[in-house]
Amino acid sequence: MSAHPYLFLALFAAAALAFALTPLALAWLWARFFSPRKPGPVKNAIYECGLDAQPTGWVQFKSDYYLYGIIFLIFDVETIFLLPFAVACKDLPFAACLAMLLFLLLLAEGLAWAWAKGILTWK
């Protein structure tokens, strides 16, 4: 009876696993017996620059800032589409130009809506 054709692959997989895990296990064992862990408030500090972090990182952000994100998107997307439009403007058919102007109108409408709602004023 011959061995299974995939037996070698399984052996190789086992050898590869052992090759990777044995040093890790040895290091873990070594640390277990010869390297006692000594955590502390200074040692576990987040920053490594020698200075204490002044305010805590646990601050609350206003959820209203998502509106600024969306308004930024208006200008961002506008720029992305306006540039190729301006380059290809002369060769475009009338319908394409109209579609582009409609798109711009939609974005401008969003901006006008935000403006009217008073989001653009910094509080």
Binding site: G40, V42, K43, A45, E48, C49, G50, L51, D52
Partner: peptide, 8 residues
């Protein structure tokens, strides 16, 4: 700062 770095 030196002592803190040493502690870390």
């Amino acid at each position: 700062q030196v002592v803190r770095l040493f502690n870390q």
